[in-house]
Simulated assay, not measured.
Amino acid sequence: MTDPTPRRVTSADVARLAGVSRATVSYVLNDTPHQTISAATRGRVLDAATSLGYAPSAAARALRTGRSDVVLCLLPDWPIGPEVGALLGNLSTGFARSGLTFVAHPGNHADRPIADLWKAITPAAVLAFTDFSAAEITAMRAAGVALVVGLLGRGTAPRRELAVPQQRVGRLQAEHLTAAGHTTIGYAYPDDDRVRIFAEPRLAGVRAACATEPSVRIVPLDPAAAAEAVRRWHAEGVTGVCAYNDEVAMAVLAGMRRRGLHAPADLAVVGVDDIPAARLAEPALTTVTTDQAAVAAHLATTVLAAINGTEPPATDLTGIVTVIHRDSA
């Protein structure tokens, strides 16, 4: 009967095939300096490793170097849309360039205790997007795990190593509308409580840019419910709406169609994220976008600095948020 669990290829297998010692295999594969290994021997080792499909053990490497090469990213219970997906992809690429492996774990603290996750992986660093308890922070740092809180935590510790400018997102939405002459503005708030951590600072940015308090209404991703929000805005004299994101903005557009209204003549609408469907909306959606590659580069630099015990370089992220003007506003 075939063994369902194949045996892992080891450095001893590579050594036998290449006709060298395990130490030589280790020197070659780890590119150890100050070793006098001929080009021919190095080539045999690399060819043997490739032909066998050899992958060094992460656990063994951590024991040898005293540090894992894994960065563990703990995501809250967020919907993984195009923007978060782009950020994760850019982070993976950025860390790979520094020889680090990026592992993302979506979910929340109730799914599995945080300690179970980081102890199982023994990462070099944990990149999180919400706060930890003081006990969790103490335990990770005592184990030599660098900790970076990457976004919008509500507590006071650890300090915010990164502050993605979510307020600026809302401010740019409102400024775009006010520059077009809109003085009575609405805010389309999402009905998904999981994204409140984004929605609140965006709404704060809208409020900061408006001369009067915006009319805030929850807009589900449902045409009938959105039409009711549109009806109330229209009755209040609202002429422009800042939506939490592009999906909510498109719900507003759907609600307007039900009411026989048109954007931007009856109600101008501005979204956030520039998802692919935004340019296909009718009318094409004006939106605010964030350069996720720049966010990822800053996060990667911040994590590497935390691992190495140095201060990350100061970075101004305000310029990475821009308005894409289309037909809806």
Rank of each mutant, 00 (worst) to 15 (best):
D3Y: 09
T5E: 13
R8C: 10
V9D: 12
T10M: 08
A12R: 15
D13Y: 15
A15L: 07
A18I: 13
G19E: 05
V25W: 08
N30K: 13
T36Y: 12
I37L: 14
A40I: 07
R42H: 11
V45A: 06
S51I: 06
A55T: 15
S57C: 13
A60D: 10
T65L: 14
F102W: 01
N108V: 03
A125P: 00
A125W: 00
A128Q: 00
T130E: 13
T130S: 12
D131E: 07
F132D: 00
F132N: 00
M140N: 01
M140I: 00
V145I: 08
A146Y: 01
A157L: 11
A163D: 11
V164F: 15
Q166W: 11
V169S: 02
I185A: 03
G186E: 08
A188H: 07
D191H: 10
E200I: 13
L203R: 04
V206H: 09
I218S: 08
V219W: 11
A224W: 04
A227I: 05
H234N: 07
T239R: 13
T239S: 14
G240T: 12
V241A: 12
A243H: 06
V248C: 06
A254T: 12
G260Y: 05
L261H: 03
H262D: 08
D273H: 12
D274V: 08
I275M: 13
T286Y: 13
L299I: 04
A305D: 04
G309V: 00
T315N: 05
I320G: 03
T322L: 13
R326K: 09
R326T: 10
S328G: 09
A329V: 01
